[in-house]
């Protein structure tokens, strides 16, 4: 544990040296501030940043994840020659990166939102869901990045695979959902759709946030079914479990491959 934290701290430090973790946080901060400066109310601002949260966080997390994995591989040899378990080095580097990115996002987006009138409990709850979703997405996509990079010698190939995965989850998956909806429009689809959405962490995050906002009313009967599901403790637990599983699965796949590979 102590060794892991040491590795994590070092990985975070290595990352902070680059200007871009700070600019990543700054990007969210400027964005949120601009929205408020143009007079958007917090609920509208959430809708406006939603797209960005859903596109930018996964993309940055997975790309930076792959690149930083290859960067750290160079001195991984130094670490692995020390009396440290490989899983410790892996988890340490994973945590160092995920926590840095998540912190940059949380502070960057959270500060302006907290500053501008999140007065009521309900609004604070929405902000919390937004931040939690972003944090989960960061952890999930860094895990994807590591799982890919561990198995791939060529960093360009790994980058390609990462971007493909991101495209698939961010765009293609929802396209397939639409195809399913169109093909089976004669059947009651709400429950199968619920299942399919839960399988994609980006859809889970998007819907969890949408349901907190009043645009959920536009979602009609489908929305009502979703709201009932995600409103229940069971549903919320299941959604949380799904997100957690999306962190755990690639992390385990990654650490497994990391423990077996040669350096």
């Amino acid at each position: 544990m102590r060794q892991m934290m040491t590795v994590a701290r070092q990985a975070a430090r290595e990352l902070m040296r680059g200007w871009w973790v700070a600019s990543y946080g700054l990007f969210f901060m400027l964005l949120a501030w601009a929205l408020f400066a143009f007079g958007e109310r917090p609920a509208q601002a959430v809708v406006s940043v939603l797209d960005l949260v859903l596109l930018v966080i996964p993309f940055v997390s997975i790309v930076v994840g792959v690149l930083s994995f290859y960067n750290s591989r160079e001195f991984a040899e130094l670490l692995l020659a020390q009396p440290v378990a490989r899983s410790t080095v892996f988890f340490g580097q994973y945590l160092g990166l995920s926590v840095s990115l998540a912190a940059a996002f949380t502070v960057g987006l959270g500060a302006p939102f907290a500053w501008y009138g999140w007065s009521t409990r309900d609004q604070a709850g929405t902000l919390l869901v937004l931040l939690l979703a972003g944090i989960f997405l960061t952890f999930i996509f860094v895990a994807f990045a590591f799982a890919i990079a561990v198995r791939t010698e060529n960093r360009l190939k790994a980058l390609g695979a990462a971007i493909f995965l991101w495209l698939f989850l961010a765009l293609v998956y929802d396209g397939l959902l639409l195809a399913v909806i169109m093909a089976f429009s004669a059947y009651p689809l709400e429950k199968p759709l619920l299942g399919l959405c839960v399988l994609n962490p980006l859809d889970v995050a998007r819907i969890l946030i949408l349901l907190r906002l009043d645009v959920a009313a536009l979602m009609g009967y489908t929305g009502a079914v979703f709201k009932q599901f995600f409103g229940s403790t069971l549903g919320l637990g299941l959604a949380g479990a799904c997100l957690a599983a999306w962190v755990a699965l690639p992390v385990l796949a990654g650490v497994n491959a990391y423990a077996r590979r040669d350096f």
Partner: peptide
């Protein structure tokens, strides 16, 4: 001692020694 040594670029030599000492406990 590896054939070619790679170190975390952000550290000074002293910090590097401390880092490895930290790892080894």
């Amino acid at each position: 001692v590896a054939q070619t040594a790679h170190f975390p670029e952000s550290l000074s030599v002293r910090e590097l020694f401390a880092f490895i000492r930290d790892i080894r406990g």
